[in-house]
Design a binder for these strands. Structure first.
Lengths: 232, 232
DNA sequence: CCCACTTTGTGCGTAGTTTCACAAGCACGT
DNA sequence: ACGTGCTTGTGAAACTACGCACAAAGTGGG
């Protein structure tokens, strides 16, 4: 069962590369729907919005799956990336916090095209419990442990208010969920070995504002010590 | 021996730093509510989930706002970071695509605590137009240009299906919106000078899956590639 | 006034990431 | 068979980011 295959894959794929693989995968799947059989790094890079050298180096971490003079076979590459990302197996996801965002997530069909199954929806609000959302009955948060165990949940999504997020995270960790996607605007504290990724809308807006302001500032530099409001 | 002349031009705060400033800001605002007057880099770093040296270096890019032996004055730092991020001015935001996600965004009150004002909601679906969401009337996408001009919108949020995203982006760019936050699962093509940030739920899940798979492959142990090869 | 103590700001070595540029490899036409 | 043309895979250079460790700078007590 446990294959120590003769071709032990280099398990040291750079984090930056991992973050881009899903983008390549999506571009490749779009190509697949258009019946494209092969594609060059140049063209795929353009579709993914990256530099072609970067794309080639990224793919080289998975192995040598291209053909010089031709390009990459789309279908084969889709399979290889999917496998590397762990999408050839199914992942059960539980979403906690069925507010506006939680509902949006639950209804978001194309979760990774496939590979992810939303197995449980949980909320603390008694009036929410029992309602049907995206074809699933919302359960009470008190049953989190049960829901995780019964459904083999391995990924937890937190879409609660900031105040409850840490508590929910603790519960997740407690029952063995080691992958958490956090939408609440707080920094979660988790033990080593637990993987947390955060998606933060207001942070993204603030970063945009920073660049927008910089553009507006004529194009200058000068941040430094400006203790009040002066400027022009 | 021939070293290139030093570039004292400290133009620009590192991108990595910019991305963390909002996190610091949020932590500081929480402290402010607890009436904390000053805080050390050590404590603030813990609250923000980063290394204290990194935090000090980040803050040093804004200027010398700390007091040795004491720490940072919370209120002053809040102001400085806000100013650097451009939050001391107001930004008008338009959201296009009032589906589940668009509604969630419109209702998400704490948009950056302040500084961001949702000025317009637009959708292509005629049955959606005219409805009231989060206290705003949904307008038809055809009026995008009008809505942007009338409200001084400078940030556009795209929450449409993938197929419409590029089209909406083009329209935004056309009317001079140079900051776009994209939730649609596509790579947007925009001219130079336009700033696009993307938030992609399924990509985040795929990255989590990658790490989860790695954990599982290894055998009960953890990644453990922290201690790479020592000297040889 | 001076000393002990605390905490900032930063120089520097290390690690990670991006990009260039080109040799090596493959397909295809002749 | 063999050259021509195209595209991959990858050394190496250039950047960027990280975190340690410590001197500098400020506080407060005696």
């Amino acid at each position: 069962m446990i294959s120590r295959p003769p071709r032990p894959r280099d398990r040291g794929i750079p984090e930056a590369t991992v973050a881009r693989l899903p983008v390549y995968l999506r571009a490749l799947q779009a190509l697949q729907e258009r019946r494209t059989l092969t594609i060059s790094s140049e063209a795929l890079a353009a579709a993914a919005g990256v530099n072609s050298a970067k794309l080639r180096k990224d793919l080289s971490h998975l192995g040598s799956y291209g053909t010089r003079g031709v390009g990459y076979e789309v279908e084969y590459l889709v399979y290889q990336i999917s496998r590397e990302l762990g999408l050839t197996q199914d992942w059960s996801v539980a979403i906690v916090g069925i507010g506006n965002l939680g509902r949006a997530l639950a209804n978001y069909g194309g979760f990774g095209t496939r590979g992810f199954r939303i197995a449980a929806l949980l909320d603390a609000d008694p009036t929410m419990v029992g309602q049907s959302v995206a074809g699933l009955k919302v359960g009470h948060i008190d049953r989190l442990e049960e829901a995780v165990r019964d459904n083999g949940v391995s990924i937890g999504v937190i879409a609660t208010p900031a105040g409850s997020a840490q508590h929910v995270a603790n519960r997740f960790v407690e029952v063995g969920v080691a992958s958490i996607l956090n939408f609440a605007p707080v920094v979660l504290n988790v033990p080593e070995g637990v993987d947390v990724r955060k998606v933060d809308l207001s942070i993204e807006l603030q970063i945009l504002a920073f660049h927008a302001q910089r553009r507006a500032d004529g194009d200058g530099r000068e941040p430094a010590d400006r203790t009040g409001l002066e400027l022009t």
